[in-house]
Design a protein around this nucleic acid. Structure first.
Length: 289
DNA sequence: GTGTTTGTTATCAA
DNA sequence: CTTGATAACAAACA
């Protein structure tokens, strides 16, 4: 489940590997994963290059070198998408990474393959095919960003004042607020539960019931948890790997997500998991109020 | 065969 | 128009 820390880890690494490198060839193995006509996709990208990679929430935006009708390639990994890069030598060695967990590419879940002039290849894998690649114009990109993404954590836009505003005149609960990308972007099921644990707040609480002190605490916890998770190169629970095909290590630092039935690291009570807002929600019934 | 997993959108209701 | 709640999607695995 790539959320902000996982997508950011991919963005930073991948940008160093592919920025400015000419795209020599593209294989579309699953047309459904590409939200453009295949012929358009190839025509625009082959011979082009990615200048840099931006990110908003969980959405990656590859800026094209030669921008005309299309200026950006949007990539959303949804639940099981992966972007794995192999340079020429790794490919000659058999498509495996050299250290850590091996992810063989291509594999049966490879949907699109980019081949670069320097012999490197970028593989878009997606087991469940929820993810997508989509070419858009500059205007479309800006419209998508404006219409679908709220406050971006870890940027100057993420202020306590802006965060506090989200709580005004809202009837929903904390978990739903944190998962709502239009209000605050980049948080998914894992970090929503982890942030609530950090702030000692039950995810089921109505947002109107939070005190000013609790809101401030949650604000700080979100920032902290995302930064630490990035430092740990993300959480690999099921499917996530970085652009080298390596797992992230933040799973070792999770306090509640996936720990139902285990002891709370803070108070030793048993962590519970309940379906809430259609999602598995993990919490400590004792030290989260 | 069934239940479970979640990011996002569609749909309906208030 | 805004907000909220829920279902649906997709696909593999235990």
């Amino acid at each position: 489940m790539p959320e902000l820390p996982e997508v950011e880890t991919i963005r930073r690494d991948l940008e160093k590997k592919i920025a400015g490198e000419k795209i020599k060839n593209i294989e579309i193995l699953a047309a459904k994963s590409v939200h453009n006509k295949s012929s358009d996709f190839l025509k625009v990208l082959v011979g082009n290059k990615f200048k840099h990679i931006e990110r908003r929430g969980k959405l990656l935006m590859f800026a094209l070198g030669e921008a005309a009708k299309y200026s950006y390639l949007l990539v959303h990994l949804k639940m099981t998408g992966q972007l794995i890069y192999r340079h020429k030598k790794q490919l000659l060695a058999g498509g495996h990474s050299q250290t850590g967990m091996n992810t063989t590419v291509p594999n049966k879940f490879t949907r699109v393959v980019f081949s670069f002039a320097d012999g490197g290849q970028l593989f878009f894998n997606d087991l469940r095919r929820f993810g997508y690649l989509k070419l858009v114009s500059k205007e479309e990109k800006e419209k998508i960003v404006t219409n679908n993404f709220g406050i971006e954590p870890l940027t100057p836009d993420y202020t306590l004042e802006a965060f506090q505003k989200l709580f005004k005149k809202r009837q929903t609960n904390i978990k739903a607020l944190l998962l709502n990308q239009k209000l605050i972007s980049g948080i998914g099921n894992i970090y929503a539960d982890e942030a609530c644990f950090g702030a000692k707040i039950l995810p089921t609480r109505k947002v109107s019931s939070l005190t000013a002190v609790e809101i401030k605490k949650l604000y700080k916890c979100i920032e902290d948890i995302l930064k630490v998770a990035i430092a740990n190169r993300g959480t690999t629970f099921n499917n996530y790997v970085d652009s080298d095909g390596h797992t992230g290590s933040h799973i070792n630092f999770l306090n509640v997500y996936g720990r139902d039935g285990e002891k709370c690291k803070r108070c030793k009570n048993i962590i519970l998991k309940k379906k809430h807002a259609g999602r598995g929600t993990h919490y400590c019934p004792h030290c989260q109020k």
